[in-house]
Deep mutational scan, measured.
Amino acid sequence: LTVHVGNVTYHFDNPEQAEEWAKRMAKKYQGQIHVKDGQFRIE
């Protein structure tokens, strides 16, 4: 699973971990989480 934050990409084996990280990053950067094809993108 991949989480994109700006132009930085993080890889996770565990979906719960990826989702948790995406939520934390979205809160930190006050962005929206977009989920597409098993990838999380924070914008």
Results as ranks from 00 to 15, higher is better:
1 L>R: 10
26 A>T: 03
17 Q>R: 11
38 G>S: 03
25 M>S: 02
3 V>R: 00
22 A>R: 02
28 K>H: 08
4 H>T: 14
33 I>G: 02
31 G>M: 14
11 H>I: 10
18 A>V: 02
37 D>W: 01
17 Q>T: 11
39 Q>I: 10
24 R>I: 14
28 K>A: 05
19 E>K: 10
34 H>K: 11
12 F>A: 00
31 G>R: 02
3 V>Q: 01
1 L>Y: 15
30 Q>S: 12
29 Y>G: 03
13 D>V: 10
19 E>S: 07
15 P>Y: 15
6 G>Q: 06
29 Y>Q: 03
42 I>D: 05
11 H>N: 06
42 I>L: 03
35 V>E: 07
9 T>N: 04
24 R>M: 13
40 F>Q: 03
25 M>L: 11
1 L>W: 15
40 F>W: 13
43 E>V: 13
20 E>F: 06
42 I>T: 03
36 K>D: 08
32 Q>H: 13
19 E>D: 04
8 V>N: 09
8 V>F: 13
22 A>N: 01
21 W>R: 00
20 E>T: 06
27 K>P: 04
16 E>L: 11
25 M>P: 00
38 G>I: 02
12 F>K: 00
33 I>R: 00
5 V>K: 01
37 D>A: 01
15 P>K: 13
7 N>E: 08
36 K>L: 13
23 K>H: 11
30 Q>F: 07
24 R>L: 15
24 R>N: 08
11 H>F: 13
39 Q>G: 12
13 D>T: 13
5 V>G: 00
5 V>E: 00
11 H>K: 11
18 A>P: 00
8 V>S: 08
15 P>T: 10
23 K>N: 09
8 V>M: 11
13 D>Y: 07
9 T>G: 03
1 L>T: 15
17 Q>N: 09
39 Q>C: 15
33 I>S: 03
14 N>H: 12
5 V>W: 13
13 D>N: 12
16 E>S: 10
4 H>W: 13
15 P>D: 05
30 Q>V: 06
25 M>W: 06
22 A>P: 00
25 M>R: 01
11 H>D: 05
43 E>G: 04
6 G>E: 05
20 E>V: 06
19 E>P: 01
37 D>T: 00
32 Q>D: 05
34 H>W: 07
40 F>M: 08
39 Q>K: 05
1 L>E: 02
5 V>Y: 08
33 I>D: 04
8 V>G: 03
13 D>P: 08
1 L>M: 14
40 F>S: 02
35 V>D: 04
16 E>P: 03
31 G>S: 07
9 T>S: 08
